[in-house]
């Protein structure tokens, strides 16, 4: 199939107010067809109110080998997290 059709990634918003979430992929010739097939393949039980399709080759992704430089520097900033601050019990639901 790959010789014939492109791979698209499918993202679905299941309810208004929620983010689009990746659900899988499918093959189609163009974005319009991909959108129609996404409807037939991934929303047979009314799972969605909105669909995105993205040509898989258009996705730029971080690499495993980047991990150290990408994410580790973010590990040493515990002060960004609410749990970093010990407050008295009376106000701890802040």
């Amino acid at each position: 199939m790959s010789a014939h059709m492109k791979l698209f990634e499918v993202f679905i918003r299941s309810r208004r107010g929620l983010d689009h979430k990746h659900v899988g992929s499918l093959h189609a010739e163009d974005p319009a067809q991909a959108l129609e097939y996404a409807r037939d393949v991934y929303t047979r039980r009314s799972e969605g109110v909105s669909i995105w399709v993205v040509n898989s080759s258009a996705i730029v992704s971080s690499q495993e080998t980047d991990c150290e430089s990408f994410y580790d520097p973010l590990d040493d900033k515990p002060y960004r997290h609410a749990t970093h601050y010990q407050l008295p019990d009376e106000v701890n639901n802040m």
Partner: peptide, 27 residues
């Protein structure tokens, strides 16, 4: 009909999972 269609859908989800490992559906 809906059930057999689901089987096709499940096949598709699985091909899609295998494709993330670099195997094309055609192969």
């Amino acid at each position: 009909l809906a059930k057999v269609q689901d089987e096709g859908g499940h096949g598709l989800y699985l091909y899609s999972a295998a494709e993330t490992l670099g195997a094309s559906r055609e192969e």
